[in-house]
Nucleic acid binder design. Structure first.
Lengths: 339, 339
DNA sequence: GGATAAATTCAAACCGCTTTGGGATCGGGG
DNA sequence: CCCCGATCCCAAAGCGGTTTGAATTTATCC
């Protein structure tokens, strides 16, 4: 059933039927309800391609994820997708996902722009000076960044206050008497990791504690990474009494390492981790397993999608930025520093 | 730059330019190379909506994920998406993801079909008799199922041999002398979980071991689920000496529970888990942490996308089915049953 | 060299919707 | 009673491609 057939069936012109269904004012209320009823009855839904072609709006938002970059296709990304997808669906948009080899990334953006396949794109995991932003500016493709680059103005972004979260986490440990604290960060090339390290080091500096570069690690946030890094750290001479960790997954590896050494987490060794609130790893309840700085990536995805759609539809303009604060939640993994 | 502009610029008709770019034979080789060169030079890319409207092919594959169903938006789903996305991109398709409330699921399929927004859909996490399949048949929407329903014919699917994997895993434990074995399965409503339980019970039955329903658990495969179920099992009277587990994530919770009881995994308690090969939880190396039945979900996504595209493009027809065998890999989590 | 077949190219119709620019139709005011 | 502005509806022209059917060129053969 297409528009023409429906209009013939109703004895109306396609024009009127189209207007009736799209809520234009110049159609009689009676006519409109007749049209709407018929459309529903016959299950008429406008052909999406025809509609998109005619309106020039793709009703879609692109996500380009480079393949070689392991850190992207991970549970955190999945959470974001879930949140954004929720908002997209609610607004009638669809998500266009392209998984490409990283050397094809730029061309993929070009193609998306040239083919007008999407109304905007979402940019994930920015670097300090990310080449994607100037490219997208050049292409005239609207975008929003999850996270920030080094610069914080001139584009739309939503970010967690990584620096402050890690500052607070570290201060929390210092407040518990810890003096020897290590950091298991994400990939150093990622801007979020830089900011987290900044916060971590700022807290140490403010407390007059030395910063040992050997105690600052950075890698893809896997479970074995946590295990191995923690094992090495704890096995060294004069080991740290506390660890700050960038991901709950890595923290699980840390917990495993601590147990393997016969130590007790929250006793001899304290751990505090950032928690992206993934629902297959709930770290909650009255006494969560880990003390954490928590911020829901899914909620961020939802919010960013809403904002981006507002921009696309002209309800909001100019770069919009939002900085979210993580919540420090006390769990079982921290305790006073051992004497 | 659109087709008309490009053709004027070349002094050719849109017809010829279109044909030249799409590889039709009835165009002079010289003309073709001239057209191709000009297109590349001016960065001409056909408007995707116009092309899709004209050809009637959406060049997109839909994934509808119901929101309330927590089990779907999880790392396993993300892996699948990554694999399928890879194939889609290679073939020029895009993935259309719709995250909807479960009560909207059917209507979403109807809308996708009516609007002709996708050429096919991928069906995830089927139940024994999944209402989606008859719906899709009725809508005439092509689809492929990741997993199987109770029935195994009449539709296209790719599945892991869940029954045999769990049969072998259980046999492996029995071979090590274990007599008291528990199962931590996925959600019982899922068909894959039923098949896994079948395999598990078949192995017990074949060995003449009793099947204690209290030792068969089923839930969303989270980490705390593993911890709690294992804690309860191990804390009981006459506890199991081995556990079969449906997911590496849950297995991590099990490992934590074992450590918390002061037991040694692979010693007093053996664990064998299914491993979907998620790259943030690599369970490999010369001596992986867990003995596992391994099957890459990402590879499954890749393969299914390839098959589905073959069907869409007419290179293959009739229901196609593929049954993958998981690989049993010995790790550190299993050992002979304690005396 | 002209007829005939093959190789190229083109004009126009079409995909299914939106939207512009008019026409009817109707009610109210002068 | 006639005119004018609303109100409601419609024909036709896009949107930017593909594809059919026909026209034009070029090559081939007697």
């Amino acid at each position: 059933m297409n528009l023409k057939q429906l209009s013939e069936l109703l004895g109306l012109s396609p024009t009127t039927v189209s207007r009736a269904l799209n809520g234009y004012p110049e159609v009689n209320a009676k006519t409109r309800s007749r049209v709407v009823a018929a459309a529903r009855e016959h299950g008429y839904v406008p052909n999406s391609m025809a509609k998109r072609l005619a309106t020039g709006r793709a009703m879609a938002i692109g996500h380009v994820v480079p393949l070689s970059d392991h850190a992207m296709i991970n549970p955190i990304f999945a959470e974001f997708i879930a949140g954004a997808g929720e908002s997209y669906s609610r607004a009638g948009y669809s998500m266009v996902l392209r998984v490409v080899r990283s050397e094809e990334e730029a061309d993929t953006y070009r193609a998306l722009a040239a083919a007008q396949s999407v109304d905007a794109v979402m940019v994930h995991a920015p670097r300090a000076r990310d080449p994607r932003l100037p490219l997208l500016d050049e292409l005239g493709l609207r975008y929003m960044v999850h996270g920030r680059t080094e610069a914080e103005t001139g584009y739309s972004w939503l970010d967690m206050n990584n620096r402050r979260a890690f500052l607070q986490a570290t201060e929390h440990l210092i407040g518990l008497g810890h003096r020897r604290i290590a950091l298991l960060n994400g990939l150093p090339s990622m801007e979020f990791a830089r900011r987290r390290r900044d916060g971590f080091q700022a807290a140490l500096g403010a407390a007059g504690l030395p910063i040992d570069p050997a105690w600052v690690h950075g890698a893809d946030m896997t479970e074995p990474y946590g295990f191995e890094a923690a094992t090495a750290l704890l096995g060294g001479a004069n080991p740290p009494t506390a660890l700050v960790c960038s991901s709950l997954i890595t923290a699980l590896g840390v917990a495993r390492a601590i147990a393997a050494q016969g130590l007790v987490m929250g006793g001899a060794v304290s751990v505090i981790t950032h928690d992206d609130a993934m629902d297959f790893l709930p770290n909650d309840g009255p006494r969560p397993m880990f003390t954490s700085t928590k911020s829901s990536v899914r909620a961020a995805g939802r919010r960013m999608a809403d904002l981006l759609i507002d921009m696309i539809e002209g309800r909001r303009d100019g770069p919009v930025t939002e900085l979210w604060e993580a919540e420090l939640i006390e769990g079982a993994s921290t305790g006073p520093a051992p004497l």
